[in-house]
């Protein structure tokens, strides 16, 4: 007994070391269930509050670029309004006598604008923190876009903040397609460069050319169809391969990201329920 106690005292530091390492490691492993750890991540309100404060300083330097972007977007939107008004005026007589009125699919989406208060591009697992949370109507699995294209998907939500898994994270898997030919595949980030990602599951019979535009496919309920993701920068295929290796230049510059929109798909729950029901019936 005495020996045992002596042994424990002699190696107490080693035991402490092992215990602390085991705690850390179990934290790493548990962190895979990302939603549960809101408290110990940057959507925790104290940490986020500080990031918000630090961001308000940095943001000042990005104002010019943001302004340019906004004015560009403004013009594009105005052009769209004019186009749509023209179309509307030609269609009006038909709509007025239609009995089967319903909300068209294009109007099921609402946007919640938010600001990026923390983000990284140089890790293997990158995350983005936004300054809007459950109070502003953000829910898990909503899509996030910027004026340039797709950013990522909301993964954790607290009362006032939320954390997004961007394309720049191997855990994200966003379904994309070619704007030209409608062939779809999954977009995966390889961890090397924040400007590029790779597109998988494109079979060898598909015709490609450099610069082809890639957009969201609309198969995941987080994003509507047709939001730009990037362009083909390079593609390779070996004789023995069945699938292309495609390098995509992302249209969003994650390094200068500051204002984003969260997509609120109004029929999300209904679609999910319906899909679940049909799976159960099979």
């Amino acid at each position: 007994m005495k020996n045992l106690i002596n042994f424990l005292i002699q190696y107490s530091v080693v035991f402490l070391f092992l215990i602390l390492e085991i705690i850390s490691f179990s934290l790493i492993v548990k962190n895979q269930e990302y939603q549960k750890s809101v408290f110990l991540t940057s959507s925790n309100s104290m940490v986020s509050g500080m990031y918000e404060w630090s961001n308000s300083v940095v943001e000042f330097f990005k104002l010019r670029a943001a302004n340019d972007n906004l004015s560009e977007e403004n013009t594009a939107l105005k052009n769209q309004i004019i186009n749509l008004q023209n179309k509307l005026s030609t269609l009006k007589p038909e709509i007025s006598d239609s009995i089967h009125f319903r909300i068209p699919p294009e109007m099921e989406y609402r946007f919640i604008s938010a600001k990026v208060i923390n983000s990284s591009t140089n890790k293997l697992l990158n995350y983005i923190t936004l300054n809007k949370g459950a109070i502003d109507g953000i829910k898990i699995d909503m899509g996030v876009i910027s004026d340039e294209g797709v950013v990522g998907i909301v993964k954790t939500v607290s009362q006032r903040f939320s954390v997004v898994i961007p394309i720049l994270n191997p855990k994200s898997d966003i379904s994309c397609k070619f704007k030209r030919s409608n062939y779809s595949g999954g977009l995966i980030w390889s961890g090397e460069d924040y400007r590029y990602a790779s597109l998988t599951d494109i079979a060898r019979h598909v015709e490609l050319s450099l610069g082809d535009t890639i957009v969201t496919s609309g198969y995941t309920s987080s994003f509507p169809e047709g939001i730009p993701v990037g362009n083909i920068e390079d593609f390779k295929i070996k004789e023995s391969d069945a699938y292309y290796k495609i390098k995509v230049k992302l249209s969003v510059n994650f390094h200068t990201l500051s204002h984003v929109k969260v997509i609120n798909y109004l029929n999300f729950q209904q679609q999910k329920d319906l899909e679940k029901k049909s799976e159960e019936q099979l």
Binding site: S24, F25, S26, L27, I28, S37, L40, T41, S42, V163
Partner: peptide
Amino acid sequence: DIFSNTLGMHAF
């Protein structure tokens, strides 16, 4: 870790 969303890694 808490600040950089990498729970446990820096601690380890």
